[in-house]
Design a binder for these strands. Structure first.
Lengths: 105, 105
DNA sequence: TACACTTGCAACCGTTCGGTTTCATGAACT
DNA sequence: AGTTCATGAAACCGAACGGTTGCAAGTGTA
């Protein structure tokens, strides 16, 4: 069973849950109301997110509040960084070209 | 069949292929040599990447060169941006705290 | 033309995924 | 103590995934 951050964000429902939890901690019941699935399906997603350590739980009486472990998202950001570097380099190249064109004019 | 950028980067082999193609265009045969799988498996990954428009092909004689459509990676970057905003905000808050502490000392 | 090379595609296989249904557990309320 | 509420876990299902094997098609070369 692969269980990493990339696999966690592969599912659109999980991405939506992550985005929700970025704003505030929520209980499974509260999360469920934002979607068209059953509570159990949400619960399964939360299980996966917990296993990936993208989310942490905090028991409050009989409710469990889930909140986002936002630091984990940096894993994705770091991987993307190598490509961002490339397109930023291209952009500055374009900038140079434009500067040269302007000069000539 | 879900076929989007997030699902494309969920697989570690595909991530490695993407990273390879970011450096230079390659043929399936050349790509295969970097991995421990069969050519056909790589071919399947390339098919998925093509369907996601993350990769484009260019026929050169009997060889096909695959290259990365790096712009597509921005989709991921844009989604991550919302979280980057949060952790950067937290970082600058920390910065403020440190500044205040320094002042007091 | 015959043959080697590069590649894609279809069929199959075991595993995982995402979901539903059902049941168990533990906290809060009456 | 009994009931309701919030939640997780297990069993099951159909679909998709990732891989392998075998084959077909097109290009280059002797």
């Amino acid at each position: 069973m692969r269980r990493d951050t990339f696999q966690a964000i592969a599912d659109p429902t999980r991405r939506a849950i992550i985005a929700l939890l970025a704003l505030q901690a929520m209980t499974p019941n509260a999360i469920e109301k934002h979607f068209d699935t059953t509570r159990q399906a949400v619960s399964k997603h939360l299980r996966i997110l917990t296993e990936c350590e993208l989310v942490r739980q905090e028991q409050k009486g009989r409710e469990i509040y889930y909140s986002l472990e936002i630091e984990k998202m940096k894993e994705i950001d770091e991987w993307i960084a190598q490509f961002r570097k490339i397109w930023e380099a291209r952009f500055s190249q374009l900038d140079e070209v434009l500067a040269v064109m302007k000069k000539k004019k």
